Simulated assay, not measured.
Amino acid sequence: MTIAVCPGSFDPITLGHVDVVRRARSMFDEVVVGVATNSSKSALLGVEARVALARAAFEGIDGVRVEPVDGLLAEFVRAVRANAVVKGLRGGADFDAELPMALMNRHLAGVETVFVVGDPALAHIASSLVKDVARYGGAIDDLVPPGVGDAVRAAVGREDRT
């Protein structure tokens, strides 16, 4: 059985994330969505909320499960017995940011990273942009799975203005 870990902070989960996980699922028997804490970022949503929203986004999709990552990704990969890490790329800047992490995970856990090129129709969607748009009252529901927009708006203290 082949298992891939698709890690991220998912703060919040977007349709771009969902696209990458679904396509990863077509390549692996199981995909574990690892909801991690990025020490270089200040999260809008708590890890419990991010896990719950991700679980709702993948509900009913066989072979996808969502788990919190507590600590190093390399240790999580070992714990779930993953064969690979899957990361989505929107462009060259994403590759530049992901390459050192891929090399470190190979060094620490002996696991390869598979890069999945994101759908060009979703390339403009980034969690940071979703949060910024929400902070200023813009519409975000067409960028995120159902329910995520409400959670983000509540976290930034804005009402629905769609």
Rank of each mutant, 00 (worst) to 15 (best):
I3M: 09
P7E: 11
S9T: 15
S9G: 13
D11G: 11
P12V: 13
I13V: 15
T14I: 01
L15R: 13
H17W: 00
D19M: 11
V20Y: 03
V20H: 10
R23M: 07
A24P: 03
R25C: 09
S26F: 00
D29G: 15
E30S: 04
V33N: 02
V33Y: 08
V33L: 14
V33H: 12
V35W: 08
V35Y: 07
V35K: 09
V35R: 12
T37W: 08
K41M: 01
S42N: 10
A43G: 05
A43F: 05
L44C: 09
A49V: 12
A52F: 05
L53S: 10
L53M: 09
L53Y: 09
A54H: 04
R55I: 04
I61W: 10
D62H: 06
R65W: 06
E67K: 13
P68G: 12
G71L: 10
G71F: 08
L73A: 07
A74N: 06
A74R: 08
E75V: 01
F76A: 15
V77N: 04
V80R: 02
V80Q: 01
R81F: 00
K87G: 02
K87S: 01
G88Q: 12
R90S: 12
G91C: 09
G92T: 03
A93N: 05
A93L: 09
F95C: 00
L99C: 06
M101D: 05
A102V: 04
R106G: 00
H107V: 02
H107G: 03
G110N: 07
V111F: 00
V111K: 05
V111T: 15
E112P: 04
E112C: 09
T113W: 05
T113M: 02
T113A: 10
T113P: 08
T113Y: 08
F115G: 04
G118Q: 14
D119L: 11
P120W: 14
P120H: 11
A121K: 14
L122Y: 04
L122K: 00
H124P: 01
S127G: 15
S128H: 07
K131H: 07
A134K: 02
R135H: 12
G137K: 05
G138P: 06
D141N: 12
L143H: 10
V144L: 13
P146E: 05
G147M: 13
A151Q: 06
A151D: 11
R153G: 11
R153E: 14
R153Y: 15
V156E: 07
G157T: 13
R158Y: 02
R161Q: 15
T162N: 14
T162Y: 15
T162V: 11
